[in-house]
Amino acid sequence: MQKSRRQRAKWQRRSARRQKGSRNQKKAYRKVALYARYEANVRWDYAHQTSHRLVASDEADIMVFEDLAISHITRRLKPRKDEHGRWGRNGARAKAGLNRAILSSAWGQVVKFTEYKALRTEKLVILVPPAYSSQTCAVCGHVSPDNRPSQAEFVCLRCGHADNADHNAAVVIAARGVQKLLSGEPLTKPRRKTRIFRSLGPERSEVTPGEISVRRLGPTAPAQRSMSQELPGAIPEPPASTREG
């Protein structure tokens, strides 16, 4: 993927130097799109292979993942001004590199593929909140940022438990998944139901959503209308008391 990115940047520079609208420029654009598609295919293939290995393994029937908000983590930084009103450095270049690394790891695709593949083999996938998982001790449960003396080390200040930081966090995440399973909480998120309301103006304030014309069989099919809607030009029926008289 690193080689593909270098080639993509090279062909982007070449396309910028070629004559605008020419065939050679279009060829360079196709090269750029080809390398971008290659990166997407690599992530897709990696997510499928990783999820298959997790599900096909006989070591565990329950897999626990952190419910990470990837769209929030990879959000672009807002521009920042200094005290004089001039635009200053906000670390956008470093954040862009971090976002690129996160998206290249295919976190979301691995979880998504593992969920539907686990259903085929009657296995369970649980998502747990990721808050303070790297600062929590797997033995006594003490939470403190000082438990991480370095990026790779974890030393609990309360009980003295020492372990690799990633392994300790994995044990904490697994314990949270078991706790969620035993607590009886719903393991899947409910689907959010949305409704669209349109203001039709004061002249049509009594119009109901059932009175909207709908076509589903193409332009030649008659529109489906509500039974309570009056057709244009129709003569209104008299009240029941008038008909009886």
Rank of each mutant, 00 (worst) to 15 (best):
G97V: 02
A152M: 01
R225V: 05
F113L: 13
R195F: 10
S228I: 08
G245V: 05
E122T: 13
D82M: 07
W87T: 13
R18I: 01
A162E: 13
H48P: 13
V42H: 00
Y132E: 06
A240Y: 03
R195E: 12
K193M: 00
V207S: 07
K3Q: 14
A152F: 04
S241G: 01
H84T: 10
I235T: 15
L54A: 12
H161P: 05
D82A: 09
P239I: 01
R120V: 06
I102K: 03
E203K: 14
D67L: 00
V64Y: 03
L157P: 00
K123Q: 13
A33I: 10
A33G: 13
A92H: 05
A240K: 10
S150Y: 10
F197W: 13
V32M: 07
R30C: 01
K3R: 09
P130H: 01
N168W: 05
R216S: 11
M227E: 11
L54P: 05
C140W: 10
Y116W: 15
L103E: 08
T194I: 04
R216P: 00
W44Q: 04
A152T: 11
Q135P: 14
P209E: 06
H84P: 00
Q151D: 07
L98S: 08
T136Y: 04
R93I: 07
S51I: 05
L34Y: 15
K26M: 09
H142C: 08
T50G: 00
D58E: 15
Q151S: 11
L98M: 15
S22V: 12
T208D: 04
L103H: 03
K27A: 12
E237C: 05
A92M: 01
A234S: 14
L34W: 14
L181V: 06
R13V: 03
L217Q: 10
A106F: 07
K3G: 14
V125Y: 05
A69E: 06
